[in-house]
């Protein structure tokens, strides 16, 4: 049986609800996210220097600097690609947190939170896959390659898709929530594997950016703006969607009560 918090007053979990303080931050976060990502986008193209590719046969002075390599514009995709990937990991991390809380308490609202985190995660996963694939196509000349990072991220994507397929396939609410929570936890297990795979399995294709500090300060500034912007957008998306779903759930509950009354 599903538990209601009123049934167990001795150990009542704190339930997320619409109108609590995090909702007040949703709109400022969305506006801030839009501003930060836009500034980050502009910095990526107008402030951060281009990355050097293969060496050319000679040296040329461009803007007072000696350039002896092919300049790679395609690297500009990175400024959105990495923040999208990190945001997807964080969203799935929260989905796991709420899935565990659901399995422990059987409070439906935790399942709702977990589902919304997975939805936000899916949006950011799609963004990461799209940006990464277009970069791969141009730089490596293929649409797909079985690079360890790509493979583990594909597994993560498939697990998220499986999560939603499972949810739509099961009609019984408690069973659906329990099974979906388990799939969310499985997706969560893949997150640290995906993050750490480039460190565990050395790959020439996917560089370890942070550890190898392969970025100049101007690149770091542009990346940080995009990173903060994406986090704010992800947070705002979560709260806005949570608010919408909770209102829909409450309206439905009210409708059912009214039908009983009639």
């Amino acid at each position: 049986m599903r538990k209601d918090s009123k049934e167990n007053p001795q150990k009542k979990p704190t339930l997320p609800e619409v109108g609590q303080w995090p909702d007040k931050l949703a709109m400022p976060a969305l506006i801030g996210g839009a501003v930060f990502t836009t500034v980050g986008f502009l910095l990526a193209f107008l402030y951060a220097g281009p990355v050097n590719g293969a060496a050319v046969d000679g040296v040329e002075v461009i803007n007072g600097e000696l350039v002896g390599n092919v300049l790679l514009l395609s690297q500009k995709i990175f400024y959105f690609h990495m923040p999208l990937g990190i945001a997807s990991f964080i969203a799935i991390g929260f989905a796991v947190y709420y899935a565990i809380r659901y399995l422990r308490s059987k409070e439906v609202r935790f399942d709702t939170c977990s589902r919304i985190c997975m939805e936000v995660g899916l949006v950011f996963v799609v963004g990461t896959m799209v940006t990464g694939d277009l970069w791969t196509r141009f730089e490596w000349g293929v649409w797909w390659t079985w690079d360890p990072r790509l493979t583990t991220y594909l597994i993560l994507t498939l697990l998220i898709i499986a999560y939603f397929v499972l949810r739509s396939a099961l009609k019984e609410p408690e069973r659906r929530a329990s099974y979906a929570s388990v799939v969310a936890i499985l997706a969560g297990i893949d997150v640290p594997i995906c993050y750490g795979i480039t460190r565990l399995v050395p790959s020439s294709l996917h560089p370890v950016i942070i550890r190898e500090s392969g970025m100049t300060p101007d690149m770091v500034i542009a990346l940080m703006f995009c990173m903060i912007g994406m986090m704010l957008v992800a947070y705002a998306f979560y709260r806005i969607r949570f608010r919408q779903v909770r209102i829909a759930e409450r309206t439905q509950a009210l409708k059912e009560r009214l039908e009983d009354f009639e």
Binding site: L71, L73, G127, W135
Partner: peptide, 22 residues
Amino acid sequence: LLEAIYSTIIPSAPFIIAAYAL
């Protein structure tokens, strides 16, 4: 030489535009 340095700029532009747009 400049042609070689800037050789990937124009061909990569559609991919970058598509990535950000999508």
